[in-house]
Amino acid sequence: MSKQTILGRVTQLAKANINALLDQAEDPQKMLDQLIRDYSDNISEAEQAVATTIGNLRMLEQDHREDVDAAAEWGNKALAASRKADELRAAGSTAEADTFDNLAKVALGRQLGSEQEASAAEPTIAAQTQVVDSLKAGLTSMKEKLAQLQAKRDELVARAKSAQAQNTMLDAVKNIDVLDPTSELHRFEEKVRREEARALGKGELAASSLDAQFEALDDLDRRSEIDARLAALKGRAA
């Protein structure tokens, strides 16, 4: 994939509105997990693209410096050959002077070629520098966005766990509500009350039976007293 395509994707992801994406998601946590994976993958790919682009840029810059240095070196050689030609011509050695002038021309031709190569590389170097700067900025923004995504996910997971714990607690409280007629505790309380009522009934029944026995005993004593008095009356009559 070309670095221009990667640059476009990095820019798009760096500008993405996380909150808007989450608002549209049916399952925000799953979307966050997917976004984290996408961002991580694209960051890794962008880092490779940045490294490759920087490497290419450094090679261009190195070639440019070599062309600039070569142009300067050929300029010095042309100057030296031209001065030698002037010395020889002043000394009357015209043929040798022409030879050094020709060498000076060759050196100047090489200088011109190096200068042209250096000039031709400068727009490319400027463009590549701009691409590198954009990729670096986008990469930094994506890393910041990834940190936001991870923090958002952690917050969402914590909120989900808190809500689940709260619901569990509320369900537990509801299950032990003594006012709930369907609760086990209420049924147990009713059973205890019935047992207590039965015990009270048995107590009352036992008490009434005992009273009856005492009443029967009192009645027996009364009849015995009456019988004794009747016997006494009969004795006096005789």
Rank of each mutant, 00 (worst) to 15 (best):
A127L: 12
L35K: 01
S44W: 01
A25Y: 02
L79C: 03
N167L: 05
Q130R: 15
A78K: 05
V192F: 15
A163P: 00
D38I: 06
A85G: 06
D211V: 11
A118V: 02
K152Y: 00
L22I: 10
D227V: 09
H186P: 05
A118P: 06
A14C: 05
K136G: 04
G235P: 00
D219T: 13
A232I: 12
L217D: 15
D133F: 00
S134V: 01
A104M: 05
A14L: 07
A206K: 09
K136L: 12
W74Y: 15
F188M: 01
Q34M: 12
L60I: 12
T5K: 09
E195W: 05
M1A: 12
L32H: 05
A199N: 02
S82M: 09
A51T: 11
L185G: 12
G75N: 02
L230P: 01
A85M: 02
N19T: 04
R58W: 10
D41N: 14
N167T: 11
K143F: 06
Q24D: 11
I36V: 14
T94N: 14
E144W: 08
S2H: 12
G203V: 02
A20R: 14
A78V: 03
A14P: 00
K202L: 07
L205T: 04
Q166C: 02
M59L: 08
A151M: 08
M1C: 13
T11Q: 10
G75I: 01
A46M: 04
E144H: 06
V173R: 15
Q148S: 01
N167Q: 13
V178C: 03
G8Q: 09
D227I: 05
D98S: 15
V157M: 06
V178Q: 03
L200R: 09
A49M: 10
S82A: 14
A231P: 04
A91R: 07
P123S: 06
L149N: 00
Q164M: 05
A72R: 04
N76S: 15
T53F: 08
L220F: 14
F100C: 03
D23E: 13
L108D: 08
L22Q: 00
I226F: 13
I226V: 13
S119R: 01
E45Y: 07
A14M: 07
D177K: 04
R187A: 13
L60P: 07
L179D: 14
R229C: 02
